[in-house]
Nucleic acid binder design. Structure first.
Length: 471
RNA sequence: GGCGGGGUAGCCAAGUGGUAAGGUCGCGGUCUGCAAAACCGCUAUUCGCGGGUUCGAUUCCCGCCCCCGCCUCCA
């Protein structure tokens, strides 16, 4: 039984999709005005973990992630770059997909973009219905706003008392045209700053508000009711609140059954911000010599509802922990390669049950990893004592494959050594054969300096590439 | 001010009404030509603070402190 914390109820709830084993899942994606930062990816990795765990539990997940390719920032960026909106966002979309690949995040089934004509027309259709039902109105500035006072549920997800809302500095001064300060834009009338970015609508030229795109794309691709909707905690209000109001205003049905929100990533204990100089894109971290799977581990290992403090010390810890897994797998593979010594036990005990049980409990990844590392120590102990049979090793590896389908942390391939490294390795073998330890140690230092670990075993030296090794 | 999420060893982090998983770092040991890896041992009498309930609380209740976030388009 999988239990998930639903933001709506603020309680752990047993997960039961509407039409099992199908699960519909909508995840708020990036705004493609720059490279996504590691805080964004923390959320996407959490969603990836959720999807993969659900799939490993027998569900078929249909996941949608939207790309916001029209908003104030993309329009401004395009104007400043002197290119069309599409030309401006295209490279960031491409980069985003590359980053997903780097982090081994499973691609969603659909990545709808807000500017896709079919979704623009769907947004317009939804807004028309909201207008017809009295949920929306056109203000003096020609923009269309959602009238929150006719939707009593508004504020329930965030548990906000709307009468007590404090105007913050982010309220635009020109919004006095709205009936209520909390009313949000469904359709923004064109203004000069928008340049040539506009679409025709029954209310005049303009562009969609941010919130409506998710309502339109989610219902288009997943239906009027979806099982899971994820995002960062900062999306709870107003974005997800607005999505509920718009969608339910149109359909009259409960929009989302489980709302899951990921806590923020902090950097050095503070919110990431460009002015503090602690703002990192994935590319920045990769540029410091870390691999995608190291970043994946670092962002994955903390429970999604707890704040995660990103540090490079944490990256090094991730590297070490992964090396431990790599070494363990290498030993198991080696153990399999040896012929069976005795009659093998035919029973294949299920391993890692506790790992999956922990994930069932609202994705308790820390607990799950704890069980994984306990298993690693136990098997290593048995390997040291030569008490692990080849068959048992195979069972562990098979069980690991299931675990790795969720974690996706296995080293992708045993990278072949470059000719240069190969030569150093051979020279060192020769030095050792002639007991020239001085030369042997020099060569080891040389290999270490190039990012390779050298170990001498009874079967000869073993050379492994560290995460930060130069290819 | 309102609404959330956190405060557990140097760092990261599980967890339970019955006496603290795991990772990482550090130290000692086994192994090794020396290392490395692996294993063994050590490293929180204590879980933000103060009360209360209880035979017993880190875990439940009350109050307080600190950190982070949201409060109208930031994952």
């Amino acid at each position: 039984m999988i239990r998930l914390f639903n933001t709506y109820s603020r309680e752990l709830e047993e997960f039961a999709p509407l039409n099992p084993p199908e699960v519909s899942m909508y995840t708020c994606g990036p705004t493609v005005y720059s490279h996504a930062h590691i805080g964004n990816f923390r959320a996407y990795i959490f969603e990836d973990l959720l999807q993969r765990h659900l799939e490993s539990s027998g569900f078929n997940v249909h996941r949608v992630m939207n790309l916001t390719d029209v908003d104030d920032k993309t329009i401004r960026g395009a104007r400043e770059a002197g290119v069309s909106l599409g030309e401006f966002t295209a490279p960031f979309k491409r980069a985003f997909f590359e980053d997903l690949e780097t982090l081994r995040i499973k691609r969603a089934d659909d990545f709808p973009a807000a500017t896709d004509p079919q979704y623009i027309s769907r947004m317009i259709a939804m807004i028309s219905q909201l207008m017809a039902h009295g949920f929306a109105y056109q203000a003096e500035d020609k923009s269309i706003y959602f009238r929150i006072k006719v939707f009593p549920e508004y504020g329930k997800l965030a548990h906000l008392n709307l009468d007590e809302l404090r105007p913050s500095g982010r309220v635009r001064s020109d919004e006095y045209e709205k009936e209520n300060i909390g009313d949000f834009a469904l359709w923004k009338a064109w203004d000069e700053a928008d340049g040539d970015v506009s679409w025709d609508s029954p209310w005049g030229r303009g562009r969609p508000g941010w919130h409506i795109e998710c309502s339109a794309m989610a219902t288009a691709l997943l239906g009027e009711q979806i099982d899971i909707h994820c995002g960062g905690v900062d999306n709870i209000f107003p974005h997800h609140e607005a999505e509920i109001a718009q969608t339910e205003g149109v359909t009259g049905k409960k929009f989302v059954r489980y709302w899951l929100h990921c806590a923020h990533l902090l950097v050095d204990g503070q919110k990431m911000s460009k002015s503090l100089g602690n703002f990192y894109t994935l590319r920045d971290v990769i540029g410091r010599g870390y691999t995608g799977r190291e970043v994946r581990y670092a962002l994955l290992r903390v429970h999604y509802r707890a704040p995660l403090n990103f540090t490079f010390e944490g990256m090094d810890e991730a590297r070490q922990a992964l090396t431990r897994i790599d070494e363990w797998l290498a030993r198991l593979h080696e153990c399999c390669a040896t012929p069976p010594l005795a009659r093998e036990n035919e029973s294949q005990p299920a391993r890692f049950r506790n790992f999956f049980d922990a994930l069932d409990d609202d994705l308790n990844i820390s607990g799950a990893l704890g069980f994984l590392f306990e298993s690693i120590r136990e098997t290593n102990r048995a390997l040291d004592a030569k008490q692990l049979s080849a068959d048992e090793a195979r069972t562990w590896l098979e069980s690991w494959r299931r675990v790795n389908q969720v974690l996706v942390l296995e080293e992708s391939s045993a990278a072949t050594l470059s000719p240069e490294i190969e030569i150093l390795a051979r020279q060192r073998e020769q030095a050792r054969a002639s007991k020239d330890f001085r030369r042997s140690d020099e060569l080891r230092n040389e290999l270490n300096a190039r990012g390779y670990d050298v170990r001498d075993t009874k079967d000869g030296q073993k050379i492994t590439r560290r995460g930060n090794a130069q290819p």
